[in-house]
Amino acid sequence: MTRKLPTWPVYLLGALYPVWLLYQGLTGGLGVDPVKVMEHNLGEAGLQLLILGMVVTPLRKFTGITLLKFRRSIGLLAFFYIFLHLLVWLVLDVQILSQIWADILKRPYITIGMAGFVLMLPLAVTSNNWSVRRLGRRWNRLHKLTYGVALLGGLHFVMLVKGFQIEPLIYAAVILVLLALRWSPTRRSARA
């Protein structure tokens, strides 16, 4: 049934959230520090989409529900949200080029977040049919970087919060469970 559904509504719905956040920020709906709220919400939504993309394979394996057709659009939206998260931080929050570089070097959670973003760049650039055909099996190997990106994103969120907060730990735990499902002993023995 999902094969008959087009992917364009995923992109359309995904584009609405940042527009809604911007509208909320401009009209006072995001509180006293709208930049921080936008920055946080875009980053968290990007992490949620990364996790959703990782859920596609276990969902098919354990329930038979196939959403493979939508995994690329989910991944591109995750990149878009994380790019916007970074853009809000760069342009609206920090604004000073020398301070941006100093923060990347000085603050480990920013360093880890930037590393995750850099790993996403080749994934976003090669998320098209031409790259899939051109790269062949190497495309699959390249796109396994998604797991590293998700780990770095989860770690970035855990390190970002001050004090003990359960939400980032839940995200990290979900990512670890999904990675464990990907590399379970039965999967390795089946490949051998």
Rank of each mutant, 00 (worst) to 15 (best):
G163E: 08
L160G: 08
I175N: 02
M159P: 08
R107G: 11
M1S: 14
M159Q: 06
F80T: 10
S189V: 13
T2N: 15
L169K: 07
K106L: 13
L121D: 06
R72T: 08
L152N: 10
F117P: 06
L135W: 11
A124D: 00
G75A: 07
M159A: 01
A15I: 14
I82Q: 11
G43E: 09
K162R: 12
W139A: 04
G25W: 02
L142E: 01
S127W: 09
L155N: 09
Y23K: 12
L13W: 02
T2D: 12
M120C: 08
L26A: 12
P58E: 01
Y23I: 13
Q95L: 09
K106C: 07
N128S: 04
M114E: 08
A78C: 11
R71D: 06
L145T: 10
N140G: 07
V149C: 08
L30P: 10
G28P: 00
L76H: 03
H40V: 10
V10P: 03
G25A: 15
Q95H: 15
L119F: 14
R188M: 15
L86W: 04
L67Q: 09
I104Q: 02
A180Y: 08
P6L: 06
P6I: 14
T146H: 09
L67P: 05
I104A: 03
K106G: 14
T2H: 15
V177A: 06
L49F: 02
V94F: 00
L21G: 10
I100W: 12
E39C: 06
H40Y: 11
K4C: 07
E39P: 05
W139D: 00
I166S: 05
M54A: 00
R134I: 08
S131N: 04
L21K: 03
R107Q: 13
W101G: 13
V88Q: 00
A173M: 01
R60P: 10
G148K: 10
I82S: 04
R141Q: 14
L105A: 13
T66R: 14
P108V: 12
I110Y: 03
V158T: 12
L160E: 11
F157H: 09
W20D: 14
N41K: 06
R72D: 13
I65D: 04
F83G: 07
R141N: 02
R141Y: 13
H40G: 03
T63E: 07
A172W: 00
S127F: 06
T7M: 00
I65C: 05
W183H: 15
G113I: 09
M159W: 14
L21M: 01
Y81F: 15
L97A: 15
V149A: 02
F164C: 07
V91C: 13
G136W: 01
G136Y: 01
V56F: 11
D33A: 05
G75I: 12
G163I: 09
I51N: 01
L22G: 14
K144D: 04
T111R: 05
G29M: 12
F80P: 11
V35H: 00
V132N: 07
F62S: 03
G116P: 01
A172P: 11
